Simulated scan of single mutants.
Amino acid sequence: MRLALTLLFGLAASAAAAHDMAGMPMPKGPDLGASAALDGKGRLWVVDAADGHVRLRHSDDFGRTLSAPVPVNAQAEPIYAEGENRPKIAFGAKGELYVSWSQPHARPWTGFVRFARSTDNGEHFSAPLTVHHDRAEITHRFDAMAVDSKGRIVMAWIDKRDLEAATAKGKPYQGAAIYTSVSSDGGNSFSAERKLADETCECCRIALASTPQGEIAAFYRSIFGDNIRDHAYAVLHADGRPLEPQRATFDDWHIAGCPHHGPGLAIGADGVRHAVWYEAKDKPAIHYGQLDPGKAPAHLQTIATAGASHADVAASGKQVWVVWNQVNAQGFALMLRESRDGGASFGEAREIANQKGAAAAPQLLLWQHRAFVAWNTAGGFRVVPTEAL
């Protein structure tokens, strides 16, 4: 199993590097990086990428059938659509549809964060705009998007402008920075970006979640000391207050490179910060814990070990769900563990779906206190219920 995991990890990293190195050529057919969301009426919306277009589809039967795709960007452009760096979707207060993605450029590992919106239920989209004001051909990638309780669109992404500046001066700099920007006018424009943190992991996705106060919080892999790749937490204040990241996990995993495994975050109405993350200091593992920034997480427990990857978490009341991909001899199993006591303990792992070919990272969706998993695989997109059939 360790050998299988090593091979899988190497293939995933190689595929990501090959995609980065390819530069401008556009992919043929759909990649597996996709995102899904349920609106207030229970309609499912899905975004992915194919042939140089981010495409939007919807479903009124929880993914059993999908509408014909609508192109978000009328003019084709290169699009990152990997598991860690996939198109995103979010909703405005009046039903607007917001879509973001990262656009690769010619230099390896470079890109711009792009955004478009629809105010007519996805029939038409605005011309895409570049979120950040910095236009240098460097890394602005791995975008994350959320909407706060005041309707402001909060963006965060991985950015290498500070690495470039340090390198030019002959100074050391590990990884990349994370920058943020806010739109207070429904996506017509975005504020000048500001830095959240220096020296963060360069290829792990950023997890965003809403706090009970209506703000957006970020949980991300950072770098501490000499390439200790643990995680940090911060509230992304959209009103200009200082951003104050704090270390939130303490596994002390030393790795001089990015593991391509970003974390998951769900914040309950009671303020409990449920988190999942991957590390492999002693052995590959997915952990669950309740974040207490600056201190070790509460109820820390190992959810899965060798062969497990790309976990997500959701919470509703005392119910907490954790899902992940588990590699096996046939391909992947979609695995679930559930807690009914607010994350203090979890039931046994069980398989809720399987796939013989490739599979993207699963994404948990909540609807009326029930949990579903959006899972895009080589066999197609599907929504998997978490309840036992």
Rank of each mutant, 00 (worst) to 15 (best):
A81R: 04
P245V: 10
F125C: 02
D162Y: 14
K88E: 08
V313S: 02
R382A: 08
I255W: 11
F125L: 03
H124A: 08
V154E: 06
A177I: 11
E82T: 12
A308S: 13
Q246V: 11
P87R: 08
I286C: 07
Q330W: 04
A238P: 02
A166T: 13
G111Q: 06
L5W: 12
A106H: 13
R55W: 04
G23C: 08
K281I: 00
V131D: 02
D230M: 05
C258I: 04
H19S: 14
F250A: 09
V327K: 14
S183A: 11
G52T: 10
G122N: 02
D39N: 15
A304F: 07
S59R: 03
R107M: 08
S184G: 12
A116E: 02
A106Y: 05
A165F: 12
L208C: 00
A127Y: 00
A127Q: 12
H124K: 10
V320R: 11
A371V: 08
R141K: 14
M155C: 07
A81C: 01
H124R: 13
R141P: 02
F250T: 10
A166V: 13
F115T: 05
I206P: 08
S189F: 10
I286D: 11
A217E: 02
Y179E: 13
S339I: 08
V70I: 00
I138P: 07
G23Q: 11
A127K: 14
T211V: 11
A176F: 11
S149N: 15
P362R: 12
A248Q: 09
G42F: 13
F125N: 05
F142S: 10
F332P: 04
G317E: 12
G240S: 09
H274E: 01
Y173C: 12
V54H: 03
G23S: 09
G268F: 04
F125Y: 07
D51L: 04
S210P: 09
G111V: 03
A349E: 15
Y220N: 04
A50S: 15
A353F: 05
A378S: 08
T302G: 04
G271K: 11
K41S: 15
V131A: 05
A344N: 13
G380L: 02
H369V: 07
G289L: 03
S14P: 01
S35Q: 14
D148W: 03
L366F: 06
V373W: 04
V54Y: 03
A16C: 06
V327R: 15
G52S: 11
Q174H: 15
E137M: 15
K28W: 07
E338M: 14
R205V: 01
S181E: 10
H19P: 00
A166S: 15
P87E: 00
I206E: 01
A168D: 12
Y233P: 09
W277D: 03
A74C: 04
H287N: 12
T305W: 00
E123K: 15
V272H: 10
P30I: 06
W375C: 01
G214R: 06
T6I: 13
T377S: 06
K295T: 13
A314K: 09
V154N: 06
V272N: 07
H53F: 06
A12N: 10
A81V: 03
